[in-house]
Amino acid sequence: MIPYLIATLSVVVIFTLAGLALNLQWGMGGLVNFGLFGFYMLGAYICGLLVVRWGLNPLVAMTLAILTTAAISALVSLISIRLSEDYLAIVTLGFAECIRLFISYEDWLTFGTLGVSGITRPFAGLVSAQWSDLAFIILAISALCVVYVVLSLVSASPFGRLMRATRDDPDIVGSLGRSVLTIRLRSFALGGAILGLAGSLHAFYYGYIDPTQFTPIITAYAFMAVVVGGRGSNPGVLLAAFVLVFVLEGSRFLVDYVPGLDGATLASLRLIAVGTALVVLLIIKPAGFGRERPTVRAGSDLKN
């Protein structure tokens, strides 16, 4: 039971991080990142390859993965940052697909479809194998706590209010002499850093990564978490991510109880449910179940 709980909790933590990253980018910043899974994959691969190919210390590899993913996120967002948000959505999606293709075919660097195996976890030398999962979950939860605190601080800071103001009306923010471009760039990069972290934890947790693990479904789940949790609300997304993973993971057991239900059918049904729920929630409960913490109107921050 305990191992199972730890396994589920690990997935929850990684998934929550992805949800929080999207909440920062889309929820607070109004930047639709349909290519979320690509940045997540990038983080996982950079971290995994640095450990396996170049034998870097896992923590160093993770740090580099976070920084690189943040930098690449910033670059990708630059492509369309001057245009309306519709364009960022397709740019990120395109980028993610390209990353997946590149990783699948450039075997010399990425091991291609074979995948990267033998990714050692941080502190592997210090803890015995039987405590490895526990050590991992402690690391993952600590990382989540740090991210959560950082995001709460950002959310309450003048920058957070500027982000929301930019989301709601970029023209006003622009007209008050604030650079919409920089605000968007920074929020997208910060989101990218969190995705890099989530990807790294993914690589550590499974110890093995291959391109089939990274699909647009990750993006769909992250959107689901943000929509359920309420755009802009960090506690809401945290809670939503927990509930969603338990529901989705729990539904695996249906196969054992419902006759005639196989894995593929269940996967389709689950995604039909996710897609439909996304749409229904956006129609009937667009603000989600959490609430964005009301802040002083952004105007006061713009003046100083």
Binding site: V32, A89, F223, A264, L282
Partner: peptide, 25 residues
Amino acid sequence: GLTLLVASMGVAIALENVVRLFAGN
């Protein structure tokens, strides 16, 4: 427009998997 964008992604996921449900992979 952003809300519509995300909703259309939801529609896409649902439809694609309805096809999968009936036709397999």
